[in-house]
């Protein structure tokens, strides 16, 4: 794997730090006029999601991390692992609950999502920005309700709970923004 020096640290670059794959968020060059130059770097640990700040002497280097994002289809959940398939190569990958995390709340069989691979094994799973899911449980609406009303909780087929307008009924399919967990619209079948 390539080695990157501090002046090559750009936002988005994936490197190894303390044996974990990390992504560079920000890199600021700091130099006293008559002294040693430093780089103050903001880094996200891709395993834990934690953001840390770390200082390097300018010119120090880190090994690159073999991290790639890949579009895959979600196949099924066997209880222990969720399975994904690369639709071009038909290669399949499995990820445990810890790796999938909260993304599980948005994964419906056959949907496309982004799987982040590190050394060819899943590191994280990101759902599509918008998913369409069925409402399995919500209070019945009251006549005369309009979209201007307050809203009510609705449980979706994947287990996620989102707030929906009062007129939306159980059994309907809705479109949700997975980044904010917000209701967008109803989907006509």
């Amino acid at each position: 794997m390539a080695v990157y020096s501090t002046n090559e640290f750009r936002s988005g670059l994936k490197v190894m730090l303390d044996n974990d794959p990390c992504a560079i968020i920000e890199n600021e060059f700091v130099k006293p006029g008559k002294g040693q130059a430093f780089n103050r770097v903001k880094i996200r640990n891709l395993k834990t999601g934690r953001v840390i700040e770390r200082t390097f002497k300018s010119g120090e280097s880190l090994e690159g991390a073999d991290v790639v994002d890949m579009e895959m289809q979600y196949l099924y959940n066997d209880g222990d692992y969720r399975h994904f398939m690369n639709q071009e190569t038909f290669e399949q990958y499995q990820a445990d609950a810890k790796t999938v995390g909260d993304t599980a709340l948005w994964l419906k069989d056959q949907d496309m999502c982004t799987v982040t691979l590190w050394n060819d094994s899943p590191l994280a799973v990101t759902p599509a920005n918008f998913v369409e899911l069925e409402i399995v449980e919500t209070d019945p609406g009251v006549r005369g309700d309009t979209s201007g009303g307050g809203g009510k909780p609705a449980k979706l087929s994947t287990g996620a709970v989102v707030r929906v307008p009062l007129f939306v009924a159980q059994g309907e399919i809705i479109k949700v923004d997975t980044r904010t967990a917000e209701y967008i619209s109803r989907v006509k079948e």
């Binding site: 700091v30 130099k31 006293p32 002294g35 040693q36 430093f38 103050r40 770390r54 200082t55 390097f56 002497k57 120090e60």
Partner: peptide, 22 residues
């Protein structure tokens, strides 16, 4: 900022650069 210990070691001037800068 414990990383400073590894690269400043016993170099006083380097420590000063580091601590003063940050």
């Amino acid at each position: 900022m414990s990383e400073a210990i590894t690269f400043c070691e016993h170099n006083h001037a380097l420590w000063l650069d580091y601590l003063f800068s940050f």
